[in-house]
Design a protein around this nucleic acid. Structure first.
Lengths: 256, 256
DNA sequence: GGATGTCGGTTCATTATTTGAACCCTTATT
DNA sequence: AATAAGGGTTCAAATAATGAACCGACATCC
């Protein structure tokens, strides 16, 4: 791995649960030498990608990242556009709704709305969702480029629960159904006791760029509720796609 | 400069006005060799910090940045907290209101609300504001650590207009007045014909972490309007500080 | 229509940067 | 008073970054 990759993988050690880490911790988790880790952190701090707490000496993600993310968001207002519809869907379903965007080889959660229930599905911002074993992932693949689908299915597929589909053929079938139906269903494929439905949000070229999904405890989900939820998530995804692409869904390559 | 710094400075070439750049363009502007530039871009794309448009082959900022920025925002909800108050202030003043956060050695604009006027002050998200020559900068320095102030005043101070204060003594005076008054005034110090007032947003330790500012065309600003505007911006800054620090302004080291 | 310029991308010998074991200092913990 | 763990630093050795030259594709211009 090049130096740049190392620096970035340091940044990727920070999570919502552990937003502040010490030098030794970072060195241990990254596997880099302490001196190396520190030099990388220094370079990152110098550009505002990392900040160091003056009192505790621990490191956290810096304002430079916010700046660049806002520049990106100005060009491509994904969050701004989608968040209101995520809220609406969360209100109408009274379940956890999350929004993700494709990045490298997984979906990254960029926004979440949680319901008031004590028993609910908890998802963190920044969490990575594998493509083959989540409702979002399948919804994405249903409208992804062929090479993306192929790359996903030829990789090694991890089984997260006893229900996770890991045979490429079974996943292909699921993708096909999703394409016909317009939304995907994932029954405990990622976490035991959680059932999700998702639909793809698509760019002007018709390919998926992200997803919106509803995740609920299986215990409180009746079979009858699923199609209803699926249609709602599909409607939200379509609305977001339309708003992003200036109302002209015609240009979408494949119809949902 | 280390390789990491070079990679980051590539990212910093993207702006709201030019959110997509080609390889040769990036190489030219960064001053790096084309091969080097490409290798850096490859490393950045591999981690989702940069994306390449499949059709035009041009590069843009990637989703990985949004992901990290959201993780940061989850820990420290600066935008979420401040944006509603920025909106309010924009509505009540009917002028451009902008929010900035300190990063490395300047303030970075993270949010802007523009009024409906045709003649207004335009500010882009991501724009960097120098500390010595903007209302935001002076407001920040008024509640910054002594070493930050010193570092700023000993550097070389650029005059952006004929009105820019560049003598350290004059700037110190301005900082002192701001500390006493609670808000700063900058009369055309950054751009001809623009007059701004700003106040510092402060962390739990009492030091500034960002600013909120109102920028207006000097032509339509009466001397009487300034103190009114100053008090409004100060009230907004104090409210944001309180919400960020859990209502306990007592812990703030210095009183505004 | 062929000469010229630009662009994205690649190669490989040369060169400069990154690396990490050992070290120091400070702050808990026992 | 001894031990461990954390942040930070040093410098010879090892490794990774560099850039001039080159390729093919496309556009433009007499």
């Amino acid at each position: 791995m090049g130096t740049v990759g190392k620096a970035i993988s340091l940044l990727e050690l920070f999570t919502v649960d552990e937003p502040e880490l010490g030098l030794s911790d970072l060195a241990r988790r990254s596997g880099f030498d302490k001196a190396t880790t520190r030099r990388l952190l220094l370079a990152l701090t110098g550009h505002g990608f990392v900040e160091q707490d003056a009192a505790t000496r621990r490191y956290r993600l810096g304002a430079g990242l916010s700046r660049l993310a806002r520049i990106r968001e100005a060009r491509f207002p994904f969050l701004q556009t989608a968040v209101p519809l995520v809220r609406e869907l969360a209100a109408s379903t009274a379940e956890t709704v999350h929004l993700s965007e494709f990045g490298v080889d997984a979906l990254v959660t960029v926004h979440v709305e949680h319901p008031a229930w004590a028993n609910r599905v908890n998802i963190d911002i920044g969490q990575l969702l594998p493509l083959h074993s989540t409702a979002s992932g399948i919804a994405y693949l249903a409208f992804a480029r062929d090479e993306t689908v192929k790359a996903c299915l030829t990789g090694s597929l991890k089984a997260f629960t006893a229900h996770t589909l890991i045979e490429p053929a079974a996943i292909s079938t699921s993708i096909g159904e999703t394409r016909d139906r317009g939304y995907s269903i994932c029954d405990q494929g990622f976490e035991e006791g959680v059932i999700s439905v998702a639909a793809a949000i698509r760019a002007a070229d018709g390919f998926a760029l992200g997803t919106i999904a509803v995740a609920a405890p299986k215990a409180r989900t009746t079979p009858a509720a699923l199609p209803e939820r699926g249609l709602a998530v599909m409607a939200a995804a379509r609305e977001i796609s339309m708003r992003l692409n200036g109302e002209n869904l015609q240009t979408l390559r494949r119809q949902a």
